[in-house]
């Protein structure tokens, strides 16, 4: 600020007595301004020329995670029902799902599992997919990020066991692959 002149401009009578100095812009301030401008140009160039994108970053992160935790990556959760799995699932259900889907799977904030209606399909594979991926627009979280693949299998077993008991569908029916033309089987 050595270049300060502290020379008055003489506007005071035009500004209710407020005087103004004719000082130059502080060097460091001007430097900062140029720096942010150059940085911005550089950032835009980097973003555009090296094909950056938020989708790309996401995919990179997922790929890195898949490599680091292969057991999670392959967790395409092959649904395998067993009475033990269902028993273990009861506890997971009580902790995470019960508040919305009801004490007896009857629904509430979330849908019921003891009727014949499935919005996203009632085959095991479809049910597991919804548990893992959620239905965020309706408030159903993606439990795949929270529960391990084994736990997803357990809680799915618990739900589908209850569903089978209430509706009379057999486990074989439930575990059959979904119909080709989409959900609603």
């Amino acid at each position: 600020m050595s270049r300060d002149t502290n020379r008055l401009l003489g506007h005071a009578d035009e500004a209710d007595g407020i005087e103004e100095y004719d000082n130059p812009l502080p060097d460091w301030w001007l430097g900062l301004f140029w720096l942010t401008i150059l940085w911005s140009i550089g950032y835009v160039a980097w973003f555009a020329l090296t094909n950056q994108s938020q989708v790309g970053w996401y995919e990179d992160e997922v790929a890195a995670a898949d490599e680091r935790w292969p057991e999670q990556a392959n967790a395409a959760v092959q649904f395998a029902y067993s009475a033990e799995a269902a028993a273990a699932g009861a506890e997971i259900y009580a902790t995470n799902c019960l508040v919305c889907h009801g004490e007896n799977l009857e629904g509430g904030i979330g849908v019921s599992f003891i009727d014949d209606e499935w919005i996203h399909g009632g085959q095991a594979e479809e049910v597991v997919a919804i548990i893992r991926n959620g239905e965020l627009s309706r408030g159903m979280p993606a439990w795949g990020q929270i529960l391990s693949p084994e736990q997803v299998n357990q809680v799915a077993s618990y739900i589908l066991e209850g569903h089978a008991a209430a509706t009379g569908r057999t486990m074989e029916e439930i575990m059959a692959p979904p119909a080709e033309d989409g959900p609603g089987a």
Binding site: L8, L9, H11, D16, G17, I18, E19, E20, Y21, D22, N23, P24, L25, P26, W29
Partner: peptide, 15 residues
């Protein structure tokens, strides 16, 4: 601020 401080504004150009 300049009224309360009774001081001239530092830099017209900066403003």
């Amino acid at each position: 601020l300049p009224r309360a401080a009774d001081r001239p504004v530092y830099s017209y150009r900066l403003s």
